[in-house]
Design a protein around this nucleic acid. Structure first.
Lengths: 240, 240
DNA sequence: CAGAAGCAAGAGCGCCGCTCTCAATTGCGC
DNA sequence: GCGCAATTGAGAGCGGCGCTCTTGCTTCTG
């Protein structure tokens, strides 16, 4: 009936090897020239093959870009999960800081990849939300989990809001934030969601401004110290 | 001896008009397709002229991009300065919030322009630091001025640091931050510089995450409220 | 072993930035 | 007022891009 179930034919093996090589060359190119300049023709050249042959393996440039995008999100998320999992569960601040530090290390190691994930939009390319949303949210949720657990343990004392109490969230926004949390099977208050988004935004921003050199190249030599200080400040503000 | 000093010849006038038209078309294109897809050929088409003729007016695509970059920074800075100048000098928090709100309004009005200024790097294009640094720093300095004046007035109570005192800045970083401030003829402590950078980073990030739809398109309908809440939180953390 | 499936190659379309040459206009200095 | 020179636009062309289609060749399969 069914022969060779799960056992790849030689053809499939060859195809898979070629695909892997294409992905690898694509990452190299992204790191070298940036995501927006990713060129299928260039990959074909590196592969030693005529340009049209690439289209046997990837349906379009955008398709390849999407694949890299989810791979990048997943790789980052896994690195973060690995690093965070070894710090004591009740060391909430350290867990949050570890997530940030790991994100930063990943970003510094492959800056163009970070640009692909969190940089401005690649011109002419619209990431298919359906495909990228879930992997893209993993790190955010990881950060959120720390806040949720810290709050549950009574170890979250946010320093923002009129009286260090997060202030009040307007009704419309409140409903929306709680709905957003519910979409991830989370039952948390709007204030905590807002806090999570703020923390997330800050951490991404601190890293992006360093990776993209938005304060100018070589503006700060003591980059590590500055990043550490900013992460710590954010953790302070969040109340970890 | 010198005739027509400062009085443009007809040729110069014509040239200037063409240049202005090119710049205007370039902005239109940036808004439509994004900075990285800015095309000189496209501008030539819109201008009703053959592609090579463009090079009589702009030396290269990168050159045009740089010009737009500087113009964008300046336009944003002027909008911010205009808006901030009408709020009472001693209403520090309101001044800072006004700067943020104006930045956001500008960004929402011309998202691609914001992308050009603060998005990821345009592939293959390196902004000449020398040309863009000064205009690029204007808004940051505007924010910084508010913090400095607030501190001088004893109206700055940062809520970050171990005891709400900004913590301590490591020596190496401290020296660098103070030097950076000195480069702008500012004599301020490293802690305040760090605070300023943090505030700047957060405000840019809040806006970018909205403009670039990094939480997904239409993720939040109550965008205004969320932005306002985040700006307020940041102001709280900064101690305004 | 024949046929089907998979594959690489090549030519080609329209787009891009940019260069070079050549002719026409146009405004300047005399 | 006019000749000359500077300025301008057009055209052709180079190499690069994404992508399509046709044409043969290989390789696996029934």
């Amino acid at each position: 009936m069914w022969k060779n179930v799960g056992m790849p034919t030689p053809r499939e093996r060859a195809r898979e090897r070629t695909l892997a090589e294409i992905r690898s060359l694509a990452w190299l190119q992204v790191e070298e020239v940036g995501p927006a300049a990713l060129s299928l023709r260039g990959i074909a050249r590196d592969l030693g093959v005529v340009s049209s042959a690439i289209y046997r393996y990837v349906s379009s440039r955008d398709d390849l870009l999407t694949e890299l995008l989810v791979a990048g999100f997943s790789d980052l998320a896994e690195a973060v999960e690995r690093a965070e999992s070894v710090v004591p569960r009740e060391a909430y601040r350290e867990r949050w800081l570890t997530i940030c530090r790991t994100m930063r290390a990943w970003a510094l190691g492959r800056p163009a990849a970070w640009g692909l994930l969190y940089g401005g939009p690649v011109p002419g390319y619209n990431a298919p939300q359906q495909t990228t949303a879930v992997p893209g949210a993993r790190v955010l949720l990881q950060q959120g989990a720390v806040l949720i657990e810290a709050q549950a343990a009574g170890r979250l004392r946010p320093r923002i809001g009129p009286a260090g109490d997060l202030g009040e969230v307007p009704a419309v926004l409140r409903a929306e934030l709680e709905a957003a949390a519910a979409a991830f099977q989370l039952e948390v208050g709007a204030e905590l969601v807002a806090l999570g988004i703020l923390g997330w935004t800050i951490s991404v921003a601190v890293i992006s401004s360093e990776v993209f050199e938005q304060l100018g190249p070589d503006a700060i030599a003591a980059r590590d110290q500055l990043a550490e200080l900013q992460f710590a400040s954010a953790a302070d503000a969040l109340g970890l």
